[in-house]
């Protein structure tokens, strides 16, 4: 699957979408969900929590493993996708639709420092070797 070109990415396998209101929406990539397999549990960060870039802030668990999700940039959590509480498998079915949380960035320009789709794919490919 191609990584959507309108998104930014972190090497730790999160995707980041900048919304019209300046907030950013975060989820995990197709590659990440494929690696983990069937999702069975999602732990979201608390709304209002202030995150540093790279901070562990959420957990996704598949049948076979638990993995951290990191804040790709610094900001405050303004929303979480509570739909995933009862339907974590949506991450497998639609990784770029099943968002996990939304941040109000401390600095909107931080998004520019993230990977574009091609750079993320290159990072994924290099992991495979």
């Amino acid at each position: 699957m191609n990584n959507p070109s309108n998104l930014k990415y972190a090497a730790s396998h999160e995707w980041i979408k900048t919304e019209a209101d300046g907030t950013v929406t975060i989820g995990i990539t197709h590659h990440a969900q494929e690696l983990l397999g069937d999702m069975v549990f999602v732990e979201s960060p608390a709304v209002g929590r202030k995150l540093k870039a790279g901070e562990e802030c959420a957990v996704v668990e598949s049948v076979k493993a638990a993995s951290d999700v990191y804040a790709p940039i610094a900001g405050e959590v303004v929303a979480v996708n509570s739909e995933l509480d009862n339907a974590p498998e949506k991450i497998n079915a639609d990784p770029y639709g099943a968002w996990m949380f939304r941040l109000k960035p401390d600095n909107a320009a931080d998004v520019n420092g993230l990977l574009d789709a091609a750079a993320y794919q290159a990072a994924v490919d290099s992991e495979a070797h």
């Binding site: 396998h13 990440a32 690696l35 562990e56 957990v59 076979k64 493993a65 638990a66 993995s67």
Partner: peptide, 8 residues
Amino acid sequence: WRSTKPCC
């Protein structure tokens, strides 16, 4: 991708 717990 880092696994948080030694399960895998």
